[in-house]
Amino acid sequence: MSLNWTRRASAAKAMAVTKALADRRASDVAPILAEIQAEGITTIAGIARALTERGIPAPRGGGWRRETVLSALRRTH
């Protein structure tokens, strides 16, 4: 087995774990996203602001950004 093959296999495993964690996190916040949208907040920036104001931590901590909200919405729809 070559070192490059081992590195590629390790990288593939790491990517699979990262994807699974992101999918789980998105499913955890899906009900909150739906609630915010039901309140009439439908813009991505508005949803990010609402999540941050509610104290919901972003996946990597801190406040929510548009890109993070878009990623969560894509994973849940």
Score class of each variant (00 low, 15 high):
I47H: 00
G61T: 02
A72P: 07
R24N: 15
L21F: 01
R25G: 07
A72L: 06
A26N: 06
R66P: 03
E39R: 08
S2V: 04
L73E: 04
Q37C: 07
R74K: 13
L3Q: 08
W5Y: 09
G46H: 08
L21G: 05
T76E: 00
A50R: 14
A22Q: 15
A50S: 14
T42L: 00
R8S: 11
R66Q: 09
A14L: 10
I47S: 04
M15K: 15
A9F: 05
R24A: 14
T68P: 04
I36C: 04
R60L: 08
L51M: 12
A48H: 05
L33E: 02
E39N: 12
R65W: 07
N4V: 14
R8V: 04
R8Q: 12
A72S: 11
K19V: 03
R60A: 13
E35R: 10
K19N: 12
N4K: 12
H77M: 03
P57Q: 09
L51T: 14
T6C: 11
A45S: 14
R74S: 13
A14V: 07
L21M: 12
I32R: 06
N4E: 14
A11T: 07
V29E: 01
I41P: 10
A30L: 10
P57W: 06
V29W: 01
H77D: 09
T6R: 15
D23I: 13
R74F: 04
G55Y: 04
T18A: 15
D23Q: 14
G63Q: 10
E35T: 06
A38S: 12
R25Y: 15
S71Y: 00
V69P: 10
A16E: 11
I32P: 03
N4W: 04
T52K: 02
R49W: 03
S2G: 15
A14C: 02
D28Y: 05
A38L: 07
L70D: 06
R75T: 09
